[in-house]
């Protein structure tokens, strides 16, 4: 074999495109680990999108929150927010058996409470099921609501869900999402020290 041919042959060995499987596998693994880690970190650091996925949830933003001792006409029934009385209704896992004044209850919503209302005449077993939830959850209150257009309404500031069954899993979903939830206009405000009777 002539010298130049031998040199070309050696060169060919060096430049030959042999697939570097080892490197490909290595970098693929490293890359996958990096992608997985970034994804996990991203998912964990993302604030929970409160209430997303609760079917039938009504959302209302930009509600006013002035204090007034006079009566307020609310657009929604029960009201989801708006101007309200300077005194909040106590909402320390509280069950009221008589209807509340809207203007005080709305102030409890401002403090991060969830207000469960039901149409008078709701079956006792249904009322009991709701009461069990209220007793387990600080920053919640419950009261009958005459002329309610659904058997049950769950209300937080700017968030509302109307239901027909107290055992609907959306009750727990709503409570988890909105008790002292991100919609709260006045986080840290109390559920005691306010109005203690209907």
């Amino acid at each position: 074999m002539p010298a130049n041919t031998r040199a070309r042959a050696r060169k060919n060995v060096l430049t030959e495109r042999r697939t570097p499987w080892g490197s490909i596998a290595f970098f693929t693994v490293v890359g996958l680990i990096a992608v997985a880690a970034v994804t996990v970190a991203f998912v964990r650091s993302r604030p929970s999108d409160a209430g997303k996925g609760i079917a039938g949830l009504v959302v209302k933003d930009d509600l006013s929150q002035n204090h007034t001792t006079g009566p307020v006409t609310y657009r929604d029934s029960p009201p989801m927010g708006g101007d309200h009385d300077p005194t909040w209704q106590n909402c320390d896992a509280r069950i009221y058996t008589a209807p509340l004044r809207n203007e005080n209850a709305v102030h409890a919503l401002e403090h991060g409470a969830v207000w469960i209302t039901y149409r008078p005449g709701l079956a006792a077993a249904q009322v009991d099921a709701l009461a069990r939830r209220i007793r387990a959850v600080d920053y919640s209150l419950m009261s009958p609501y005459p002329n309610l257009d659904a058997p049950i309404a769950l209300t937080a500031w700017g968030r509302q869900l109307k239901l027909t069954d107290a055992n609907d899993p959306r009750v727990d979903a709503f409570l988890s999402a909105f008790v002292k939830g991100p919609q709260t206009p006045e986080p840290g405000a109390p559920c005691t020290g306010g109005k203690d009777a209907p």
């Binding site: 929970s48 991060g112 959850v137 600080d138 920053y139 919640s140 727990d172 988890s176 002292k180």
Partner: peptide, 27 residues
């Protein structure tokens, strides 16, 4: 807030200590 955790557990308080729900609530 930082953990993205709910502020309440409708299944009842103190489950983290006893591993079972307390239907009695805050009491």
């Amino acid at each position: 807030d930082r953990w993205g955790a709910p502020k309440t557990d409708p299944r009842g308080p103190m489950r983290w200590m006893s591993h079972e729900g307390h239907a009695g609530g805050a009491q």
